[in-house]
Design a protein around this nucleic acid. Structure first.
Length: 802
DNA sequence: CACAGGTCTCTTTTT
DNA sequence: GAGACCTGTG
């Protein structure tokens, strides 16, 4: 049997075209990964290509891992020598070997966004920039874009002439880069830019890799930026141009990160001899879902014409639900999934909830906990950017590379060693004057003038670090980390800090310990540097495994490449999705990008798609009233299971003209609203409370999940009473800060003074007071563990217990 | 030097 | 609503 027999005609053509440039336009769900893996197998088995000569590049580690796994299954011997990696890790591997050719040390560390920010703060201080006028963030964004466009500090300065802001950026860029270089550190963008620089300035190195990578494949090509484009172009700059890129221009959603959709749109201009194959048959979704996706994406101008089709039949209509509030929306989604799982014996893992912004996960998460359902939030705060993890890693980095100033300074006084700001400033000045690193300055603490007794504290610190370094030879990595946690007293301080989430933090540190242990076991030659490097390049999506039956909650961005039987998209409102920034942008391509995101979201669903909108929700502490998303209105009505409320475009202040039809954008006849369809106000009492005590996700089987935050309503109270700032944004209800008109008074809770109640976060306690307030009941509870708390009944969601 | 409390801003998306 | 930042106090 032929290797390619199971492919359709187009797929087969794509997989068997092996010489010259090849562009595969692969619509969502068209079997792209299948084609890539078959192509690799075909190269090796039919064309006798040496696996060693194959390079396959992806964006995420997860994608790389999956590809590797699938290729392994198809290709017997030799598949391990295929180079399958992400852009960033590919660059790291190359730079570790050759970066000394362009003036860096091969033992460089990688700075994440947080670290970059710390450096930039420093730079701004040095350049005496007014933090009110010049934001680090803006500078970093400008520098990042420059790097993505392969513009180095010198070239940037040349271009900046005559423009005041650009000149400020140019100075900061130069200084920033100098600081990084001194710390022997590279940021994410450097990895790409410097690899290109290396190739350009060292033709022998480039040639070496060109010889090795005779067959190059790039996945998700629509998301490449200029640096990535150039990197690939250089590698494929051989007489044969054996370059195969796969992508879908309709799924280009990373413009904010420098992705240039023209890389894929203009592929044929770069390589006039290129062959193009379009994969339009979709094997994932029903026709109704595809028709909806097609209808939405058709509104974009900048795209290659194509239309997905399926032979799986029409399937269900698209479900549309509108709710009064974001709270109702979340309640419905969690309840609906719970109900379906129970009634139809479906698995939680068959469901995913997608949203535009990470902030939306909170309400959903709360509801999932209420329902006692297993779930995992993907994204949000990356595991490796959590404070406690960064602290511990900073110790390891300091031990590994003393030049990493950011790491050293991070932990110098963590846990507290009585080393304050003045001392640090003196060390800093000394280091700057002597042109040595911060750590080197610490080593010579006695020579630093004006330190007084502070000097001995610094000596204690450096002695400790040097002791760790000394022990590295005899220690395993695990032992080293255990020693660090013990000797520094970090874990001890964390445990006794009394902070509310101390427990979660300790768990996270323990998680890190097991990650290190796992690394040490699986790596061929485990080293501290190796571990730190691996850790620097993981994305949150990478940690989503197959195992465990739980519903995934994530942003639309994170969902790219995934598929689920049931998909819910929450927050389909103009102002949120498409976002406010997009709506007010004068660049039409911004809206196109947003629309592509909608397309990505819709095409994640295999069988059932539910689109949700809420007429009001809190954003940045303000209550916003948003109309239904234009993307929903772009879907033909006959594909939806219910008619949309009439669209009206009335001015914002007219919202409040009459109380009866307050939210005209949603249709005053209230058709389609949750309350009357029986789902919108699904009561909490109907589902047994299986919620775990402290937000640990039921059944999440070892994968890291974000802990549920407390909803301490003391803060809410402040939030509500705060004056709503004068706002220029559209769709924001001016002057309404939740407490004023139209808000119903909370229903008297089911518990009373003297009852025992249970709170998600604080555990059990006794109600000591219950008072009616303007908007809600204020309840005071004396918790067994957490002490007395005052909260609003509507928010606290207390459960009465016997 | 450490900590508590207040103010301000903010991201939309992330390797 | 939360984090970063600033300020005043012990």
């Amino acid at each position: 049997m032929n290797l390619l027999d199971t492919l359709n005609k187009e797929q087969r053509e794509a997989a068997s075209t092996i010489t010259g440039p090849l562009l595969i336009i692969a619509g969502a769900g068209s079997g792209k990964t299948r084609v890539l893996t078959h192509r690799i197998a075909y190269l090796i088995e039919e064309e006798a290509v040496n696996p060693w000569n194959i390079l396959a590049i992806t964006f995420t580690n997860k994608a790389a891992g999956e590809m590797r796994e699938r290729v392994d299954k198809m290709v017997g011997y030799g598949s391990e020598s295929i180079w399958v990696a992400t852009f960033h890790s590919t660059c790291v591997r190359i730079l570790r070997r050759y970066i000394d050719r362009i003036g860096y040390d091969t033992n460089f560390t990688i700075y994440d966004t947080d670290d970059s920010k710390t450096v930039m703060k420093e730079v701004c201080k040095r350049l005496q920039y007014d933090p009110k006028q010049i934001k680090e963030r803006a500078l970093l964004n400008a520098i990042s874009s420059a790097k993505n466009e392969l513009i180095g500090p010198k070239e940037f300065a040349l271009n900046a002439q005559g423009d005041l802001w650009s000149q400020k950026v140019a100075d900061a860029y130069a200084e920033y880069q100098k600081t990084l270089h001194k710390s022997n550190a590279l940021d994410f963008d450097d990895l790409l830019m410097l690899t290109v620089e290396l190739f350009r300035s060292c033709p022998d190195v480039l040639e070496n890799y060109q010889n090795r990578f005779q067959y190059i494949m790039v996945d998700e090509y629509q998301d490449t930026n200029t640096a990535q484009f150039e990197l690939i172009r250089l590698l494929a700059d051989t007489p044969e141009h054996n370059l195969c890129v796969v992508g879908d221009d309709d799924q280009s959603i990373y413009k904010f990160r420098g992705a240039n959709i023209h890389n894929i749109l203009d592929f044929e201009k770069t390589y006039p001899e290129a062959k193009v194959v379009k994969l339009e048959q979709n094997y994932r979704s029903t026709q109704n879902i595809l028709s909806a996706a097609n209808a939405v994406i058709r509104n974009n101008m900048e795209r290659k014409d194509k239309a997905l089709w399926s032979d799986q039949g029409e399937g269900d209509k698209i479900h549309f639900k509108a709710f009064e509030s974001a709270y109702d929306e979340a309640e419905f989604i969690a309840g609906d999934i719970a109900r379906k799982c129970k009634a139809e014996r479906l698995k939680f893992g068959d469901f995913a909830v997608l949203y535009r912004t990470n902030a939306q996960s909170r309400l959903l998460e709360e509801q999932f906990v209420m329902e006692g359902m297993p779930y995992q939030v993907v994204g949000g705060v990356n595991f490796y950017s959590r404070k406690e993890i960064k602290d511990v890693l900073a110790y390891l980095k300091t031990i590994d590379n003393g030049l990493d100033d950011v790491a050293v300074r991070r932990i110098l006084n963590v846990p507290k060693r009585g080393i304050g700001a003045t001392t640090i400033a003196r060390v800093q000045d000394f280091a700057a004057a002597k042109e040595i690193s911060f750590f080197e300055a610490l080593l010579g603490a006695e020579e630093i003038p004006g330190l007084g007794k502070g000097a001995s504290k610094l000596v204690n610190f450096t002695t400790m670090i040097r002791a760790f370094r000394g022990k590295m030879k005899e220690y395993s990595l695990r032992e080293l980390l255990a020693d660090v946690l013990e000797t520094t007293g970090y874990l001890e301080e964390l445990k006794t800090s009394g902070e509310e989430d101390a427990e979660d933090r300790v768990e996270n540190v323990e998680e890190l310990v097991s990650k290190l242990a796992a690394y040490e076991e699986s790596a061929e030659q485990p080293t501290l540097s190796g571990f730190l490097e691996e850790v620097a390049l993981v994305a949150d999506i990478d940690t989503v495994g197959e195992e465990g039956d739980r519903t995934l909650l994530m942003t639309l961005h994170a969902a790219k490449g995934l598929e689920f039987e049931h998909v819910y998209i929450a927050g389909m409102e103009d102002g949120l999705f498409p976002g406010y920034m997009t709506i007010s942008s004068d660049d039409p391509s911004d809206m196109e990008e947003e629309r592509r995101l909608a397309y990505v979201g819709i095409t994640r669903a295999k069988k059932h798609l539910t689109l949700c909108a809420a007429q009001k929700r809190m954003i940045h502490g303000e209550t916003q009233y948003n109309p239904i998303s234009r993307f929903i209105r772009e879907i033909p009505e006959d594909l939806l299971d219910r008619p949309l409320p009439e669209k009206k475009s009335r001015a914002v202040d007219e919202f409040f003209d009459d109380n009866d039809s307050l939210f005209s954008g949603f249709g005053s006849r209230s058709s389609g609203y949750g309350a009357e369809d029986g789902y919108g106000h699904r009561t909490r009492e109907t589902v047994p409370d299986r919620a775990p005590g402290n937000g640990v996700n039921y059944g999440s089987s070892g994968t890291f999940t974000k802990a549920v935050h407390s909803y301490n309503t003391q803060k809410t109270l402040n939030g509500l009473s705060r004056k709503t700032p004068e706002s220029r944004k559209p769709f924001i209800a001016k002057g309404v800060s939740g407490l004023s008109k139209g808000m119903p008074v909370g229903i008297k809770p089911s518990y009373d003074v003297g009852d025992r109640v249970k709170h998600i976060k604080y555990g059990e306690g006794v109600v000591t007071a219950l008072e009616k307030r303007e908007k809600d009941y204020q309840v005071t509870v004396s918790f067994d563990e957490a002490g007395q708390k005052i909260m609003y009944a509507g928010f606290a969601k207390l459960q009465r217990i016997e």
